[in-house]
């Protein structure tokens, strides 16, 4: 079986999809991504706009109306949820296998790293 061509999702794409589990307009997505990532991912407007355009093309998100007739509101699609789930499983596997190896050699790195 060939590997899923959409995986791995980039960190920003993953957070955008996560943010769009509830409908949101552009700036709200920026704020949610920053919040969900614990302040780690701060996107600029031009970068987010390009990402939104791309995700619409891939049908991972879709526009659902506007607020104040100007700001478009987007939400994740079923395909978007499916690809996120596959990426979640992928990361989950990485974490499980890593933990198993760290546990077996008894030298788990701690937070001081």
């Amino acid at each position: 079986m060939g590997r899923d061509k959409y995986l791995p999702l980039t960190e920003t794409v993953y957070y955008i999809l996560l943010a769009l589990h509830e409908p949101a307009h552009g700036y709200l997505i920026l704020q949610k991504v920053e919040e969900l990532s614990g302040g780690q991912v701060r996107m600029a407007a031009g970068t987010l706009y390009g990402a939104i355009e791309n995700l619409i093309k891939l049908r991972f998100i879709e526009p659902v109306g506007t607020v104040d007739n100007r700001r478009k509101v987007y939400v994740i699609t079923e395909e978007g949820r499916a690809v996120m789930f596959r990426d979640y499983e992928r990361m989950n596997h990485m974490m499980e296998i890593t933990r198993r190896i760290w546990n077996s050699d008894g030298r788990e790195p701690h937070a001081e790293m």
Binding site: H25, G26, Y27, L30, A45, G46, Y49, R71
Partner: peptide, 16 residues
């Protein structure tokens, strides 16, 4: 036109 407006609104909201 809607896409252009949405684009400008996003930049405005972000301080541009």
């Amino acid at each position: 036109k809607e896409d252009f407006e949405d684009y400008r609104a996003l930049f405005e909201d972000s301080g541009w």
